[in-house]
Write a protein that binds this DNA or RNA. Sequence first.
DNA 1: CGCTGAGTTGAAATAGCTCAACTCCTGTGG
DNA 2: CCACAGGAGTTGAGCTATTTCAACTCAGCG
Lengths: 212, 212
Amino acid sequence: MQSSANLSQPGFSVPIAIRTRPLSRPAHTVFHMAETEIYAQGSRAGAIYRIEFGAVRIHRLLADGRRQIVAFHVAGETFGFEAGAVRSFFAECIVATGLTSLDYAGQDHYEPELMEMALRGLVRAQEHLLVIGRQQSLEKMAVFLMDLAERQGGLDSVDLVMSRTDIGDYLGMTIETVSRSISKLRSLGILRLKSLRCIEILEIEKLRQLAS
Amino acid sequence: MQSSANLSQPGFSVPIAIRTRPLSRPAHTVFHMAETEIYAQGSRAGAIYRIEFGAVRIHRLLADGRRQIVAFHVAGETFGFEAGAVRSFFAECIVATGLTSLDYAGQDHYEPELMEMALRGLVRAQEHLLVIGRQQSLEKMAVFLMDLAERQGGLDSVDLVMSRTDIGDYLGMTIETVSRSISKLRSLGILRLKSLRCIEILEIEKLRQLAS
DNA sequence: CGCTGAGTTGAAATAGCTCAACTCCTGTGG
DNA sequence: CCACAGGAGTTGAGCTATTTCAACTCAGCG
């Protein structure tokens, strides 16, 4: 795993605190290297994290060695809610990421905005179910790209911070099928690859139609 | 659809209120016929429901006519949380069901137990992703049955309140594959069908192993 | 400038889907 | 109480999409 290689680099194994703009409570951005762990399954829950920059994946390892990514999160989003005191998923940085954290557990009352964030995560997970439940790989990929484009600000250019393997583990398909789906969309004239990790959407309407 | 047939029965189209034990706030159980709608996608959100008896499915209809069930809920569970003011899913009774409702929207502060219920829904949806993401239909069925058995009190006998079609739409597979998976588990000596809708688990360890 | 990992592409194998026939409950009405 | 009708579920056969296995290309990096 690449993460262990990164973790072994001296001076970067421990997150570095960087002072940023003051919030309602004094918050500071903590820097995390790419491919490093934010929290592990089984660890103590209680904090949530807001992504200042970068991207994060939430996943679980299955007994047979496979991995299911249940969510990607990008800048501006909040993750880390758990039911109960123990985390049931792993959170890892995909790229270099800045996080601010907030201890939310054990409060007498919760702010409506906190509830709203938790519920948005719920809806997002349920929407993800709609995608994974589909059988057509091309549709899955179309929905994935539409969603990502939207979250990155609605541009016609999508920055794939995650690897094909990550995408596969997110959509429930192999990296070969991921690759073939992208190739198919490319041959249909819907996409153009600026580079392997940067996709330009040429025909957003056709893509939307595939995504239904 | 059977629901319309049931809805057309005079005297049952409107839910009937039945007085039950008093709660912290005066709550009464509302009775719903099998196969009737509790709320629709697009309707106004704001209330959550606790199931006193019966079973409920949460789903969405896709553009191509397919249906994805994102959750089943049984007695004792609470459903109906939404992010935003509009419902993004349908809720329907699978069988005759008694519900107590609670208006939760627009509060200044939320009780920890309310947050906990919402978060449990989140984790449940994410766990569901792990199941649907798997490619083996036998595994999906094994996980589904284990989960259902557990929620029904850990007995070795599972009461399938939902149809094979419901199960298929929940697990992302066709009813034929659902049927074949059950038949396979039966031929492996893991299950026995007391009736079509009542399954006895003979070899819980083997089932757990399949479910990983 | 070659090495390495990521990504792509091809060919064969396979799991699940589709279509179709059939069985078996269940409930309704005579 | 039995017969029948209709829906739900099962099973079979062929087909298709995706997985698997393998070879190959490409980009980034020391």
